[in-house]
Simulated scan of single mutants.
Amino acid sequence: MYAKRFIQLFFIFLITMFVVDYVVDISGVNNYFYKSLLATIIGYVILTIPLTILTILKQKRRFNAATGLTDKSAFQNALQNLDNILILSTVDASGEIASNIVTFKQSHTDENILYIVSDVTSQRVGNIRDNQSVAIATWFDKKTGNRLTSNQIDVDLIVSNQLQQMLKEHSEIRELSDTFKNKVVIQLRIKSVRVESFRDQLVDITF
C-alpha cells in the first residue's frame, strides 16, 4: 500500500470515529446492543462512501493526464477520450473463449503497448499460458462513438524478477494495483488495431 493511500485511509478512519462517537452520544440510546448496532451501521456507511469514490476515481483515470506520449495518431486520440477499461478475450487449451472486463495502462514509451495486472491464478493468465491468442475491445466514447478493437496482439506474461524490473522501468504500471504479491503483468503489444466511430470513417492502424 502506498503512503498516499495509507494517509487517506487514516483520515477517513479518524473522521469516522469522531462522527460515530458524536452521533451515538446524541442519539439517546442507552442499550449496549443498540448502541453497538448504531455505531456499526454509521461507521460502515461513512467508511464505504469515500472508499468507493477513491476506487472509482483510481479506476477511471483518463489517459490525457497520465501518458507521456506526444504522438497524436488516430489510435492515441481515441485512447485519450476513453476510460482505461477494456474487454480482454483469451482462449484456453480446448479452444473455449473467455472474456473479462479489465483495467489497463498504456506504456509511457510505446503507444501500442498496454499493461494489465492480474492474479497469478486467474483464468486469463492460465489461458494465456496455454494459448497466446488474445483479442481486445474498448468501451466507446459517448460523444463520438470512438472504440478500439484488435486481435493482432503479441502477449507476454511478466513474472518474478522480470516483474520487479518492469515496475522499475515502467512506474505507470503501479497505478493498476496497490500490491504485486502473487500478481502477473500481462503485456499486450498491439500489432494492428481498428479505430471505429459513429462520426468518422473506420481506420486500420498497423504498428
Rank of each mutant, 00 (worst) to 15 (best):
N100W: 00
A135D: 04
V45F: 14
F140Y: 12
D130A: 15
D178W: 13
E196R: 02
A66C: 14
N146G: 07
F18S: 06
A93Q: 10
V134L: 00
Q80G: 09
A135N: 09
A137D: 08
L88A: 01
N84V: 06
L157T: 02
I15G: 12
L47A: 08
D21F: 10
V20P: 01
M17R: 10
I49D: 01
S133V: 11
T67L: 08
E172S: 12
V159I: 15
R124C: 03
V117W: 00
Q123M: 04
T138K: 00
D204V: 10
A137Q: 13
V19G: 00
R62D: 09
L38F: 07
D178Y: 15
I101G: 03
Y34L: 07
D25Y: 12
I42M: 09
R199Y: 05
L9W: 04
N100H: 08
G145A: 07
Y115S: 03
A3F: 14
D156F: 09
T52N: 11
S197K: 07
H170N: 13
F63M: 13
V185T: 01
V159H: 08
N112R: 02
I87N: 12
E169H: 11
Q80L: 13
L82R: 01
S171D: 15
M166A: 14
Q152A: 14
K58L: 14
L51I: 08
I42H: 01
S192G: 10
V185C: 03
V185Q: 01
D92M: 03
V20G: 03
I26A: 04
V19S: 06
S133G: 08
V102S: 04
D178Q: 11
K60L: 15
F207Y: 10
L14D: 05
I173G: 05
L37K: 08
Q59R: 12
T149P: 00
K142P: 12
R124A: 04
F63L: 13
V23E: 10
I7D: 11
V125R: 02
D156R: 08
L86N: 00
T103E: 02
S99G: 13
L114N: 03
I56R: 14
Y2M: 10
F10H: 05
R194N: 10
V19H: 02
F207C: 01
I26F: 03
E172L: 11
R194D: 09
N84G: 13
M1V: 11
I158E: 02
D71L: 10
A135E: 11
L9A: 12
N151M: 05
E96C: 08
F75W: 10
T16R: 11
K72F: 12
T144K: 01
S27Q: 06
I101Q: 03
I56T: 14
A98N: 14
I128R: 01
N84A: 09
V195N: 03
R189A: 13
Q152N: 12
Y32L: 09
H108Y: 11
I12Q: 05
M166L: 13
F63C: 10
N84M: 08
Q106P: 00
L167F: 06
G126E: 06
E96R: 15
N100K: 02
A66R: 07
F198Q: 14
F33D: 04
N81Y: 10
A135T: 05
L38N: 02
S197F: 01
L54N: 08
V102C: 07
I53G: 07
N81Q: 11
K181M: 09
D141M: 03
S177K: 01
E175A: 14
E169S: 14
K191N: 15
I116F: 01
